[in-house]
Amino acid sequence: MVPISTQGQGDRSERGAPALLEVANVEVIYSHVILVLKGVSLEVGKGAIVALLGANGAGKTTTLKAISNLLKSERGEVTRGSIKLEGRSTTDVTPHDLVRQGCIQVMEGRRCFQHLTIEENLLTGAFARSNIGKSVREDLDRIYQYFPRLKERRKSQAGYTSGGEQQMCALGRALMSNPRLVLLDEPSMGLAPQVVEEIFDIVGNLNRSTGVTFLVAEQNTNIALRYASHGYVLESGRVVLDGTSDQLLANDDVKEFYMGLSGETRKSFKDGKHYRRRKRWLA
């Protein structure tokens, strides 16, 4: 198997500049007793698209919420490890301040404000910004360029728009905060393959044209790895595999367990003999 590394994500050079996001050995406990993340480490380079893969309950959402500091409101807590945004620790930074620093999460299930119109939803995304007024208007137009469908539906109540439109709305709303890093949680959830393709296409476009970095949690391994440069595979709260997308796509275990390409009966990833070969993470 090819050696696995995280080098070369986006424009992050090997000159030793810190990654945009560094997650090291993070442990998360819910309600003081439920240990969910057991030492997750990952890096996201500036300007990259990185995929966070794993089955149901692997801990993808928990990892993203640990980064965006949304765990507290769910009685979850980071009990060990560190999370750094551009070298600065995010412990004790409120979600409001994190958004102002450029890190925003698009939550699983889209979570648009159902009784607000699409345009109002987008505008709420600019709430945390300090520059309001004209530049907000300009950004709104920019969002409409990326999502022409949203422009058509701008006066509709979000609750009455389609799943795909709501996903676009949630993404557009996050972009209205002028982020540098978007934590995108399962954008493909419940959407038709064609719509999923459309969403990822927009993500790819945004990434290329504006340099926004994405960490995308996905169960849809295939499409996520097509757009991402790197991927991490989570299982039961641990990173069991990581590498460039090409490496992961070529990996037999990934093929078998996450893309269903092998005809063998399904078994846990842990049974695979390659499992132990994974890179040992920072002590």
Binding site: S73, V99, R100, M107, R111, F113, Q114, E120, N121, A128
Partner: peptide
């Protein structure tokens, strides 16, 4: 108003409001 809109957003889904930086 901007704050009024944020208030309606919070009453719709306060978790989502928190996630986009509404304090």
């Amino acid at each position: 108003t901007r704050i009024g809109r944020a208030l309606r957003a919070v009453s719709d889904d306060h978790q989502a409001a928190l996630s986009i930086g509404i304090p």
